[in-house]
């Protein structure tokens, strides 16, 4: 079982609509996205194709198109869509009282294991 580790990554207002911001947790880049409908999502910021920074992609519906070679990745599961296959890790994320919290528990376990 993963131990939850919620960290406060900043103000919810800082995540632009249909856009993303990123931060580093230890050595792992993490992207926090806001979909057009307002929903927040967090993914490890590495495209399953060649590691492209998904946080720089165009966000549409609940997906992001990787800026390097246009793979489309689901914001909810981190899975590549369509005929491409591969997956990056999705992390739980929540807005509470205007701040965004990301659960990096899965990473801290992996890092300490």
């Amino acid at each position: 079982m993963n131990t939850a580790l919620w960290i406060d990554v900043g103000a919810a207002a800082a995540i632009p609509s249909r856009g993303a911001r990123r931060f580093m947790f230890r050595d792992t880049p993490i992207a926090v996205f806001r979909a057009g409908d307002g929903g927040l999502f967090a993914l490890i910021d590495r495209c399953p194709h060649k590691g492209g920074p998904l946080s720089e992609g165009i966000v549409h519906a609940r997906s992001v198109t990787c800026p390097l070679h246009n793979w489309v990745i689901s914001l909810e599961t981190g899975n590549a869509q369509g005929s491409d296959s591969g997956c990056t890790h999705a992390l739980p994320v929540e807005a509470r009282d205007g701040q965004v919290f990301v659960d990096v528990g899965a990473l801290s376990l992996a890092a300490s294991a």
Partner: peptide, 16 residues
């Protein structure tokens, strides 16, 4: 400015 500034997380809450 936001586009070019990464988020700076604060370790705020650790559960269990």
């Amino acid at each position: 400015a936001d586009e070019f500034t990464p988020l700076r997380p604060a370790l705020a809450e650790a559960a269990e």
